[in-house]
Write a protein that binds this DNA or RNA. Sequence first.
DNA 1: CGGCTCAGGTTAACCGCTTAATCACGCGGC
DNA 2: GCCGCGTGATTAAGCGGTTAACCTGAGCCG
Lengths: 355, 355
Amino acid sequence: MTASGEQGRVTIRQVAEHAGVSEAAVSYALNGRPGVSEQTRARVLAAARELGWAPNIAARSLGTAKANAVGMVLVRPPRVMVVDSFLTQMLSGVEAELNRNDVALVLHLVDDFAGTIDVYRRWYAGRHVDGVIMTDLRHADPRPAALREIGLPAAVIGGGDPGGDPAVDGLDLTGLSSVDADTAGTAQGIVNYLRALRHRTIFRVAGPRELLHTVQRDAAYTAAVAAAGDIEYRCVYTNYGAADGMRATRELLSLTEPPTALVFDNDVMAAASLKVAHEMGLSVPGDFSVVAWDDSDLCQITVPEITAVVQVPALQAELTARALLTAIGGGGPTRLTLPPGTLTARESTRPPRPR
Amino acid sequence: MTASGEQGRVTIRQVAEHAGVSEAAVSYALNGRPGVSEQTRARVLAAARELGWAPNIAARSLGTAKANAVGMVLVRPPRVMVVDSFLTQMLSGVEAELNRNDVALVLHLVDDFAGTIDVYRRWYAGRHVDGVIMTDLRHADPRPAALREIGLPAAVIGGGDPGGDPAVDGLDLTGLSSVDADTAGTAQGIVNYLRALRHRTIFRVAGPRELLHTVQRDAAYTAAVAAAGDIEYRCVYTNYGAADGMRATRELLSLTEPPTALVFDNDVMAAASLKVAHEMGLSVPGDFSVVAWDDSDLCQITVPEITAVVQVPALQAELTARALLTAIGGGGPTRLTLPPGTLTARESTRPPRPR
DNA sequence: CGGCTCAGGTTAACCGCTTAATCACGCGGC
DNA sequence: GCCGCGTGATTAAGCGGTTAACCTGAGCCG
């Protein structure tokens, strides 16, 4: 702290001179390794602090063959609004864990999904990162297999419920870590809630079908509806965007047998549905109820406020990062499931109008 | 591509053997440097491709004393929704430019603003990055001076209009690069637009006062209003959040002399104001008009749709990244101003009700 | 034909840190 | 009194590139 801003960074050598020991001793001392007495260790530490030394990570990486960094490749454009909020929460969670372990986060945006694997390959070959974190797993996603082939440790945020059938998902997560929310539980919660309000026709506006995320929810809803036994369920897929949400909502509400409740895979589409209701002269929750899976401020600035499920992506991401670090450290892969999201009832849900 | 997944990465040495030349020749060839014939260069390149070689960045960094990376430190939590969208757009822009130059982006989130400078210091000392990109400059922000002292090249997204008075802003941007939008022009555009609609009382719900961003807009609006000469202007500061926006809106609309138009520093607050209008039994744009500075999907899913100013943060960020790379490369600092944002008129603005 | 130049290559030092191998030395045991 | 041993240190060999300095031979000139 004292001596910064000088030309030429402080190296271990200067610390060694200053403390009157060899460079190796400094290295041992600074890394908390045996081989030096507590006394010299203290002297070295003092010297390092005094000179404002910080390890040259390039040198360290070269020596240890570890990058002390993990990478994330995102596909540009990062979809839409909500997802932005999701993204920042995830980054926040990931970083929380990485910081704790002095591991850096390298971010990379690619234009097309296909480019992702090339980046992984380069990262591996160049020892750029020690592992990667993935999100937005897709149906038949080539990344898990590629990473296994490359030999790069990886963890995935929302990787799929344990027990997800590889044959169905088109992917094999062997060897990868993953942390997922309890999709089945959440869907059940939503269905039960609406059913308790006496809704029997629940339609869903989902995300893109390619996303594993969506497919998982498909399965979860289907199961929940089947368990209830007396509910009519139906689903259309979208791209998560506001315009998509509006189109889908219009379509579903125009059916001869319209639903009494609409559930959305994100908050933006749920909010957009209110505009459609307005257009069509319908009232929410008078004519139909609305539930959003994924909460945000947005759900509270609409009229009516939207009933939503609260998830904690930051925590999920944090645990994923932890799992990755364990895997990098040689521990086996972790497979974790978080408790279901909790539903916050607001103004957009109510028993259906008796007919 | 062919030979990946083998144990032990491919080094320059193996490429050299494979091509039948020395390691140095390989280095020259791969870096497009003179010293090898076109013929051997081609042979080396072929060998490298065939073996799937990629430079070990640690080794390269150590040799060249360049990290080939730039860093961004963000303060957690990343404020709110909109800003999330801003963030992703910025990252997208930054990455676009960095990718083009094979420079990595290192992201770091800190809990308190104060920690930022320590990170910069460590990054510099450890040659972690060659430069940093800043956002959200504050009044009396300590970062520019610190970076200058440390000697780390830096560029700031939205750094302040050239001509901004250091004495006023409490900061000195000497030596730093910055790319800003034409705040003055944008404010003028908004004021002119509303004035043309015959609004004479325009109140503003602004962001946090600590942000330079907000202060710049203060100056811009004040100037625009002064130029018009016949407008009553007034401003309250918030934290950008939906709740803040609602509170501020309520406050301003409850004045004995309420405004006929409200301008907001972001889209979330503008959207939230519609809810307040609803609460108070007022109509938009019947009772007052609404303009958002910063556009997003959000402005199009509300009823009425919100008139907004479109900015291009991605471009701004991209140019900032470019400026940083130039600075790192030894070029002088760049100071750039982008054209004003363009106003998109939607349903939330209309001439005021004659009284 | 000797010597100079220059393109095309090679050798080896170095970047800063890690770590295996080595060493000095004091001490207890036989 | 000598040997073996453990402790606390040092020495030196990499890690995988970059690059200054040096070498070699062909081409050219006077």
